[in-house]
Structures are given as structure tokens and as C-alpha cells.
Amino acid sequence: MSTVHVLLGLLSRGARHGYELKRDHDQRLPRAKPIAFGQVYATLGRLQRDGLVEEVERDRAGGPDRTSYALTDAGRDALAGWLDTIEPPAPHVASALLAKVVVALLIDDPDRARRYLGAQRAAHAARIRELTRAKTTAEATLGEIVAADYAINHLDADLRWLDTTVGRVADLHREVRQ
């Protein structure tokens, strides 16, 4: 995820100070890793240095300074360029799940691999049920629903792959026994 571009996107809705940007980030990207205040302010500093945002207001209403920032024309152009750039599909697959499944299959214990695959499948199915419940509550925001849909689709793809792998393991063990 590009923190720079997410902050530019949040600023496209109007001037904001760092606290508001952090809150908006965490609300709009509810399933993403929360952003730290320090990261927000460091990124705003770089964006200002690069001419993508500008300070528009400094307020000290009973607390620390709150500096609001707004997009510059260069910031709008940078955001538009980022949004117009297609994300290339990942050339390599790297995940802890893939590594564990491959290692479980390497171990000379077919029952261990089957147990792991079954347990992992159950964990994925439970997470899908949890996300489905969360997105169907009356309080669910559009951002939460979209994030849950994204996660559910990825988990569903993993489940299909796990099922295919279980089938391949079963086929392999039938061949070995013959």
C-alpha cells in the first residue's frame, strides 16, 4: 500500500490535519494495518517538501498545534497518475501459507500434511464466516463492506487452492500405494 497516495486521496476530499488523516485512514481502510501518527506526520512533511501538499491553516485551540494541509495542483496530478497506473499482477507468489503447505508436503508423513491442510481450511472457513457476519451488520460502513469482500474473495481463493491441494495429495498417495 502506498501511504503517500492514500493520504493524497484522503486530502482530495478537503484540507485535513494529521489527526483527521489518521482517523480517516483507519476508518476508510478498516482491514488494513493501522497507520501510526508518526508515519502520518513524516509523510506529510515529505509531501510538503515535494510540493504535493501545502499548509493551509494552523490552529492551537486549547492543545497542540494542528496544522491542516491541502492538496496542491501537483498533488492532484500525482494522485491522478497513481490512480491511472494499473497494478501489475505479482510475478511471484510468496506467502506463509504456500510455504507451510509445501513444507508439510515435503515431510515424510502424509497424515501430517492432511491434518495441516484440514486445520488451515477450517481456519479460513471460520474467518470467512466472521467477515460475512461483520459486513452484514447494520453498523457496517461501505469501506468495511468493501474491505470484507476483498478479504473474503482472497480467503475463498485460498480455500479453492487448499481443496485442489488436498485432492493432489490424495492422488499422490493412491499412486504411491499402487
Rank of each mutant, 00 (worst) to 15 (best):
Met1Thr: 15
Val4Trp: 06
Leu83Cys: 09
Ser2Phe: 09
Arg115Trp: 05
Leu117Gly: 05
Leu83Gln: 15
Ala138Tyr: 08
Gly51Trp: 01
Leu172Asn: 06
Ala32Asp: 14
Val40Ala: 04
Ala147Ser: 05
Lys22Asn: 13
Trp161Thr: 01
Ile152Asp: 00
Gly62Met: 05
Glu20Trp: 08
Ala99Glu: 07
Pro110Gly: 10
Asp65Glu: 11
Leu10Ser: 07
Tyr116Val: 08
Gly118Thr: 15
Ala119Phe: 10
Ser68Val: 01
His17Ser: 01
Asp59Val: 10
Glu20Ala: 13
Gly14Tyr: 09
Glu57Met: 15
Val93Met: 05
Leu105Cys: 07
His25Asp: 02
Asp26Met: 07
Asp24Glu: 11
Pro64Arg: 13
Arg23Trp: 14
Arg129Ala: 12
Arg133Asp: 10
His173Asp: 11
Thr141Ala: 09
Pro89Glu: 11
Gly51Ser: 03
Leu71Ser: 12
Trp161Phe: 00
Arg60Ser: 10
Ala15Phe: 08
Arg174Cys: 03
Arg174Tyr: 03
Glu57Ala: 15
Thr3Leu: 15
Arg174Ile: 04
Ala36Arg: 12
Leu47Pro: 01
Ala134Tyr: 01
Thr141Val: 09
Arg160Thr: 04
Ala61Pro: 02
Gln39Val: 06
Arg46Tyr: 02
Leu83Tyr: 08
Asp84Lys: 14
Arg76Cys: 11
Val101Glu: 04
Arg177Asp: 15
Lys33Pro: 06
Tyr41Asp: 06
Val4Phe: 09
Ser12Asn: 05
Arg114Phe: 02
Arg177Glu: 15
Gly9Glu: 13
Pro89Met: 09
